[in-house]
Design a protein around this nucleic acid. Structure first.
Lengths: 159, 159
DNA sequence: TCTAATGGTAAAGCTACTTGACTATATCCG
DNA sequence: CGGATATAGTCAAGTAGCTTTACCATTAGA
């Protein structure tokens, strides 16, 4: 393969790199959010994987299997994260009245406060980014990401 | 805290979830790409972390520290990935004529073919998504992601 | 009522990193 | 020139965030 061909393909790659942008942006945003959390409460033991769970826990409690499917991860992974959150006093597992196998993951009072605090961090970062990008870009980005997400979910579901 | 307040905050969270969309989309796209790779060559030992390196390796070779900074990960992490790729015969480490400490990571002939093959996979996925979202959405998504990325990089650099 | 599905746990392993400590070479400077 | 400091890379160990496999308890369906 001559160099010229190779270089040409590399050019194509650059054009095809939306997905790589996605990966890198995700990584960086994650890191940045973690920085903010640590700056705000340096002794926190809550990690992003935990906070990712938070918005999916309903007020009346949510089963772990439901959390797993909402997050797109295994129920065991959810179990581990919930274990951690229970140890931190953020959530508790209460028996599900409708099914003796199941338990509902519910926030404690502490957990709710932490949720709101975490929310504040996310909004801070979001506001920071919006300040640089403009509200419109931020808005269309959200729309397009949502579309991308559903396209990705569509793609795997029927297979 | 009354429930009504709590519910209201949750609504805010939903609005503030661009970043969570980003995280989830990134995860899914990664998985989808991996599926495609495995469908194409079931016995491959190359993983996404390896292929992420590929577009950053220049034709004339690239130092590991440079790769690390381009990818935003530690030089040790790059070292590990390059170790793997060397074992697979994809790349080789050649001495840097300008610096006896350094070595240049270069593609082997095998590596170049693998690169082009991986590129094809990425473009396939990209085309698949573009088919669902439309070229325009895909294009603005790329633009916006690039903007987001530079905003994120700006944010950490001066700190 | 037997069977299959579902909710969850236990244990181990894997990927993709990180940190800290170290060596070898290079560069700047008095 | 010599010495401090920076840089390229390696080695070893640890961590985060999952997964897979195996299993138990309960429930739902034929």
């Amino acid at each position: 393969m001559p160099d010229s061909d190779y270089r040409q393909r590399l050019e194509q790659q650059k054009q095809a790199s939306t997905l790589q942008l996605l990966f890198k942006a995700s990584r960086l945003a994650n890191e940045r959010a973690l920085e903010l959390v640590r700056a705000r409460s340096p002794d926190t033991r809550v990690r992003p994987a935990h906070t990712a769970l938070f918005p999916h826990i309903d007020l009346e409690g949510t089963r772990q299997t439901v959390l797993a499917s909402r997050l797109g991860i295994s129920k065991q992974a959810v179990g581990q994260l919930v274990d951690d959150l229970v140890a931190m006093g953020m959530v508790e597992r209460v028996p599900d009245p409708d099914d003796a196998r199941a338990r509902l993951v519910c926030f404690t009072a502490t957990g709710r406060l932490a949720l709101l605090d975490g929310l504040a961090v996310l909004m801070q970062l979001q506001a920071e980014l919006e300040g640089r990008l403009g509200a419109e870009v931020m808005h269309t980005l959200q729309q397009n990401l949502a579309a991308l997400l559903s396209a990705l979910e569509e793609g795997t579901a029927p297979g």
